[in-house]
Amino acid sequence: MDEDSRQRVVGWLFGSLLRHLRSLLFRVLSVGVIPKHIAFILDGNRRYSRKMKIPETVGYRAAFLALVCVICYCYELGVKYVTIYAFSIDNFKRRPDEIEFLMDLMLTKLEALLKYQNALDEYGVRIHFVGNLHLLDSRIQAAAGKVMEATKKNSNFTLLVCLVYTSTNEIVHAAEECCKEKKKLMNGTAAGGAAAAAAEERVITVVDLEKHMFMGLAPEVDILVRTSGETRLSNFLLWQTSSCLLYSPGALFPEIGLRHLVWAVLKFQRAHPYLQKRRIMVS
């Protein structure tokens, strides 16, 4: 056996051992409550580039690889929903060259997802994009629409990607849709004046708002992870995180790994009784 073949065999054995150990670890974690929904604020990509003295483009690619690993870990653990804050509306204030790179990277990854649709279907992965997608380049809008359409029937795992998103924009959007719905009922003629009177008395409720939220297809967030040690929410899922665990590891996002996810889940399991009590009180 030559040196290359020997290295491949060693690599395969090492990878197999790591997968087995990870499986055992997740079985131990499964004795406790597994979170249904974990959200991530991908913070620290540019700081990582400066720290490693590499171009920002390389830092963003490293962040993407870290993101793929974390999503896979969540899937293996049994988490049903993962939400990532990929691009805020406020990010349009960044340098034009940085925005252009991020848009190109986004389009490349969307096109790659379409190529690997069979794998997504095999694992039952649904991908849903959240936010004001009409603010994106038409090519990205089209690609995102194709990905959502291609995976909408999958139900084992849902990945929600917040693009051109802010929570205040989501809440305003929901309120506007509720008002349109009420106006439509008031203008209805099916039941005559009685329908208009009933609609006029109708108030906008929490249930009405949640029905029109961009994030309406996912349950409340159980764990919100923001890397780089920051504790700000930055206008992300303000409505959905009122009773969740906030976890802020010091690692920059490209540095995030299995140990951070495990620690977040352990902290959630410890706090779960209190969080459940809070949710009951709020509801």
Rank of each mutant, 00 (worst) to 15 (best):
I171E: 06
I171F: 05
H173M: 01
H173E: 07
A174L: 02
A174F: 01
A175F: 03
E177G: 08
C178I: 00
C178R: 05
C178A: 00
C178F: 03
C178S: 03
C179K: 13
C179T: 11
C179N: 11
K180A: 01
K180E: 06
K180C: 03
K180W: 00
E181A: 06
E181P: 12
K183G: 06
K183I: 14
K183M: 10
K184D: 06
L185I: 03
L185P: 06
M186L: 06
N187Y: 04
N187G: 12
N187V: 02
N187H: 04
G188L: 02
T189P: 12
T189M: 08
A190T: 04
A190D: 13
A190F: 12
A191D: 11
A191F: 14
A191E: 14
G192C: 08
G192M: 07
G192R: 08
G193A: 14
G193H: 05
G193K: 05
A194G: 07
A194E: 01
A195F: 08
A195L: 13
A196I: 00
A196N: 00
A197Y: 10
A198R: 06
A199V: 01
A199E: 00
E200H: 11
E201K: 13
V203N: 15
V203W: 14
V203A: 10
I204T: 08
T205H: 03
V206D: 14
D208K: 05
L209M: 14
E210I: 03
H212M: 07
F214M: 07
G216L: 04
G216P: 13
L217H: 13
L217R: 05
L217F: 12
L217P: 13
L217S: 15
A218P: 10
A218S: 13
P219N: 14
P219S: 11
E220R: 09
V221Y: 03
I223V: 13
I223Y: 02
L224K: 01
